[in-house]
Amino acid sequence: MAYIAWAVALLFAMNIGASGAAASMGIAYGSGAVSKRVALFLCAAGILLGAVSGGGEVVKTLGSDIVPEHMISVPVAIIILAAATLSLFISNMAAVPLSTSEVTVGAIVGVGIAYKVLFVKSILTIVFYWIAVPIIAFLLAFCVGRLVTAAKKFAVKKSWKRILPFFVIATGLTEAVSAGMNNVANAVGPIVAAGLMSVREGIWIGGLFVACGALLLGSRVLETNGKKITEIRLLEGSAVSGLGGTLVIIASHLGLPVPQTQITTCSILGIGMSKKGLRIFEKKITVRLLKIWLISPCFSLVISYNLVKIFIDFDFYSIILVGSVFIATIGLASFRMPVTRAVLSKKSTKVKLKKQYNAER
Score class of each variant (00 low, 15 high):
1 M>G: 05
1 M>D: 04
3 Y>N: 01
6 W>A: 06
16 I>L: 13
16 I>A: 02
24 S>Y: 03
33 A>I: 10
36 K>Y: 07
37 R>S: 11
49 L>K: 06
50 G>H: 11
51 A>Y: 12
57 E>T: 10
63 G>C: 06
65 D>Y: 09
79 I>D: 02
79 I>C: 02
82 A>E: 01
85 T>P: 00
86 L>D: 01
89 F>L: 12
89 F>G: 00
91 S>V: 02
96 V>W: 04
97 P>W: 09
101 S>Q: 09
101 S>R: 05
104 T>W: 08
106 G>L: 07
108 I>E: 04
108 I>C: 04
118 L>N: 04
119 F>E: 11
121 K>V: 08
127 V>C: 08
127 V>R: 06
128 F>R: 01
134 P>F: 09
135 I>W: 06
137 A>I: 04
137 A>H: 04
140 L>Q: 01
141 A>I: 08
141 A>G: 04
146 R>M: 11
149 T>I: 10
152 K>G: 00
154 F>Y: 00
156 V>R: 00
162 R>I: 14
164 L>K: 00
165 P>C: 12
166 F>R: 10
168 V>T: 14
172 G>M: 12
172 G>L: 11
174 T>V: 13
185 A>I: 06
192 V>D: 03
194 A>D: 06
195 G>H: 08
196 L>A: 08
196 L>M: 14
198 S>N: 07
201 E>Y: 07
202 G>P: 04
206 G>Q: 09
212 C>Y: 08
216 L>H: 01
219 S>A: 13
221 V>G: 01
224 T>S: 10
225 N>Y: 04
230 T>G: 11
232 I>V: 08
233 R>S: 11
237 G>L: 00
238 S>A: 14
240 V>H: 00
244 G>K: 00
246 T>M: 08
247 L>V: 03
250 I>N: 00
252 S>C: 01
253 H>L: 10
253 H>C: 00
254 L>Y: 03
255 G>Q: 04
255 G>R: 02
257 P>W: 02
259 P>V: 04
262 Q>W: 07
264 T>H: 06
265 T>Y: 02
266 C>N: 13
270 G>P: 06
274 S>N: 05
276 K>L: 14
280 I>F: 13
284 K>S: 15
284 K>T: 15
289 L>I: 15
289 L>N: 13
290 L>T: 12
291 K>L: 14
291 K>G: 12
294 L>Q: 10
302 V>H: 07
304 S>F: 13
305 Y>V: 09
311 F>S: 11
312 I>K: 09
314 F>R: 14
320 I>H: 02
321 L>E: 10
322 V>N: 07
324 S>E: 05
328 A>Q: 01
331 G>I: 11
331 G>E: 07
332 L>Q: 06
334 S>A: 13
335 F>H: 10
336 R>M: 15
340 T>R: 13
340 T>G: 09
347 K>C: 13
348 S>N: 15
351 V>L: 15
351 V>G: 04
355 K>V: 12
356 Q>S: 15
